[in-house]
Nucleic acid binder design. Structure first.
Lengths: 77, 77
DNA sequence: ACAATATGTAAAAAGTACTTGACATTTAGT
DNA sequence: ACTAAATGTCAAGTACTTTTTACATATTGT
């Protein structure tokens, strides 16, 4: 995948806004392991689209409110 | 991942709305192989979040306009 | 000081996405 | 009838995501 992209996320923020939801709770709501939440939240890798949808769903928001997408080198509007 | 989910997409429709963009062109815009576009468009597998963003970007729309997410068993509002 | 909860790290194994290359089928243009 | 372009299929290999297990550290309440 040539054009480089950065995906950042607001999971930590959203967890705190969402009544201090723990990583464990989010993991359960999203149906994945806690490890996966830790890794995604820490930006170690970006999730599958499916998991992205599950996480957004756990917070009741759209994917775009959880994950930000930036094309490296271009300035995103 | 326990709760089953279905991810469908409007890639084909969007390609035609977008001036009959071919799979090849979309592949180039998104920076992936044509094979990948074929597989995702045909629903053989769902893409990574990164690719989902790239595809949405190629059409200039949000992810939610390209991909639909349905929790199987529950009726999505 | 102790126990319980939340977060973090690491690493192997399994599963899924993506690439490459090669070939088949369909459709449109000449 | 031929050619070119677009779509589709198959398969082997690489890369990345996710799980599982096990342990480390920090924070809070008793």
């Amino acid at each position: 995948m040539p054009k480089k992209i950065e995906i950042t996320n607001n999971i930590r923020r959203l967890r705190f806004f969402a009544n201090e939801m723990t990583q464990q709770e989010l993991a359960e709501k999203a149906g994945v392991s806690r490890q996966t939440i830790i890794a995604v939240e820490a930006g170690k890798y970006s999730p599958s689209l499916e998991l992205a949808f599950r996480i957004a769903d756990a917070f009741g928001v759209a994917i775009g409110e959880v994950f930000d997408y930036t094309v490296v080198g271009e300035t995103k509007k």
